[in-house]
Simulated assay, not measured.
Amino acid sequence: MSTVFETQLSSLPLLHRGKVRENFAVGDDKMLIVASDRLSAFDVILDQPIPEKGMVLTQMAQFWFDILHDVVPNHLTGIKPEDVLTAEEAKLVRGRAMVVKKLKPLPIEAVVRGYIIGSGWKDYQATGAVCGIKLPAGLQMAAKLDAPIFTPATKAAVGEHDENIDFDTMCQTIGRDLAEQVRSVSIALYTKASDYAARQGIIIADTKFEFGLDEAGRLTLMDEVLTADSSRFWPADQYQVGMSPPSYDKQFVRDYLESVPGWNKKAPAPKLPQDIIDKTAAKYRQAYEALTGRVWLG
């Protein structure tokens, strides 16, 4: 299996190295985004990669960009990585790279929740609301909401935690007109994706979108979209209200790390056993196959 922990390219200048992705400049108005196999848990980047994870994330995102292209423009250019790289470098990033438009990113995470779980569940237990949105009393963990809710968050730097914010705070950050557009588009994206996933036997409990503005000021969907890193996918046949269903993501890693005595959720993270790495890699592949209906070929 292909494994890439960090991408080094000589033909393009590095713009940014994030938790998982590296961005390289392609001229003045485009970027090459490469998804590595790095994995972060509790906002700590682990030393051990998850084989083929970056390939799964990239190909799943491309799948969703195609399905959702009529809802909002996205950052894809149609240019292939091999068109901007040497043959050797193109082989290095095969299946895990996209050439995209360079945008002005919005400084918020556009989170949509169809079910009450995770940080939303914690907020609801404490206040009866999520991001200022009052919810009915007596909801159980993992309950389906009457309608999807938009619950924005700050976009944290590496090593820091995103923080849930209310809609008014988002309006103060990016302006009310743009905030309302982001909210409307995000719910439309989630609704279309959820309807599709339901036909595949998958529940999308929640997800986060990222947006930027192009040169004309148009709202544009960017980064990853509806991957196992940015979403909670639950198998519909194992869903049950009142408990956290099994999910197609890095929960094996989270559970293991939380079981390690004395770890304070700061770097360096404990070393992962091989079986945890293997199970996590398998979960990412299963998510791809379940949602796309395609056999994972790498």
Rank of each mutant, 00 (worst) to 15 (best):
D123G: 08
A137F: 06
H75W: 09
Y115L: 06
E109Q: 11
K91A: 11
L76Y: 09
R113D: 02
L103V: 09
P107T: 00
K144P: 10
W121G: 07
M141L: 15
L92H: 09
M98D: 01
R113W: 01
D83R: 08
K80Q: 14
I116C: 13
L76C: 09
L92A: 06
S119M: 04
W121M: 10
V99G: 07
L139R: 13
I149S: 05
V84W: 10
A87F: 02
T77N: 08
G138C: 11
V111M: 07
T77M: 09
H75I: 07
I133M: 01
I108C: 04
K144H: 07
L106T: 04
L139E: 12
L85P: 05
I116N: 12
L92F: 10
E82F: 01
P136W: 11
H75F: 08
L103H: 09
I117A: 15
V112Q: 00
M141P: 08
K80V: 00
L92I: 04
D123C: 02
T86F: 02
L76M: 13
I149V: 12
K102N: 15
W121H: 05
E89K: 14
L139T: 15
V99P: 15
L135S: 10
K80L: 12
A142P: 11
T86N: 10
I133Q: 07
P73T: 03
Y115C: 07
A143K: 07
I149Y: 01
P136A: 10
A142G: 11
P136D: 10
G132D: 03
L76K: 13
D146V: 04
L135Y: 06
T86S: 15
A129Y: 01
A126M: 09
P136G: 13
G118Q: 13
S119T: 15
K122F: 00
L145S: 09
T77A: 05
V84F: 04
P105I: 00
V112G: 02
M141W: 01
I108V: 14
